[in-house]
Write a protein that binds this DNA or RNA. Structure first.
Lengths: 136, 136
DNA sequence: AATAAATGCAATTCTCCGGTTGCATTTAGC
DNA sequence: GCTAAATGCAACCGGAGAATTGCATTTATT
């Protein structure tokens, strides 16, 4: 039960796909990269988390207490945000004594960067084709 | 009433800022760019919306009906996602007769790209300083 | 003018998320 | 060993967000 909230029915109960021009299949973007980039963007899409990333990518690995001091939110809130970032692969933690130092992990940011580059290139290429078609 | 949910109290009711080392102020990132990038990332942080952007950045301006055909979700869901993207400045719409064509708007993607570049550069510079400090 | 297509608008539902509070647990320092 | 710091864990709460359903509205088309 509970149809997973993202697997839903189409518009009217019966409508055999208008298929007007439907340029939505195989656009060379959803196939290559961009798959799996949404979680990274979602993790970066919060003000507090973006600040945490900004602080951590400055180099030093910091404890939760250090990261909490300077913000207005609770230590547990910071902890949760760090876990979200870790889930997305943007940060990592190392135990050092009784504290846990969190450090930046650059690989997923690179992944997100590639995705945006792909979108930008796709757009530029579309512009180029348009310009070419107009000139003829 | 309702303390705005982001203006909250610190950890214990009274704790005059431990100020252990606190390297969180003025990290040269939160000041320059990266301010206001979170909403863009949040808009891109949804699978469906990212697909919409991927489709639209291929060039052609498409109607809601066109964008809906090919997905599993309802037309109204697509409409809402488009509005979210428009709110973030990632897409735009033009009325053309009785339909409304949605087209990609590249400026905010560039903004997001600059933010990620900033993070990556900050990280590289931190690595460089570390390497230098180790070599001495 | 009538019809059907394309969309807009409003209400509703349900889950997830950001945040807090309270207490338990590990661990450094004396 | 005892104390206090740093963290972990679990429950809870309010609101935002993703999606649906139903109906109204605009606008080509015939």
């Amino acid at each position: 039960m509970s149809p997973s909230r993202r697997t839903a029915a189409k518009e009217p109960p019966s409508k055999p796909a208008p298929a007007r021009s439907a340029p939505l299949k195989s656009s060379s973007l959803r196939s290559s990269s961009l798959r799996g980039a949404a979680p990274i963007f979602a993790a970066l899409g919060d003000e507090t988390r973006l600040r945490l990333v900004a602080v951590l990518c400055a180099g030093s690995a910091l404890s939760i207490a250090q990261l909490t001091s300077g913000t207005e939110i609770t230590r547990q809130a910071v902890t949760k945000h760090l876990h979200v970032l870790a889930q997305a692969g943007l940060v990592r933690h190392v135990k050092v004594g009784r504290e846990r130092r969190w450090e930046f992990e650059p690989s997923q940011v690179e992944e997100a960067r590639r995705s945006l580059d792909l979108i930008a290139r796709q757009w530029d290429s579309a512009l180029g084709r348009l310009k070419l078609a107009v000139e003829r």
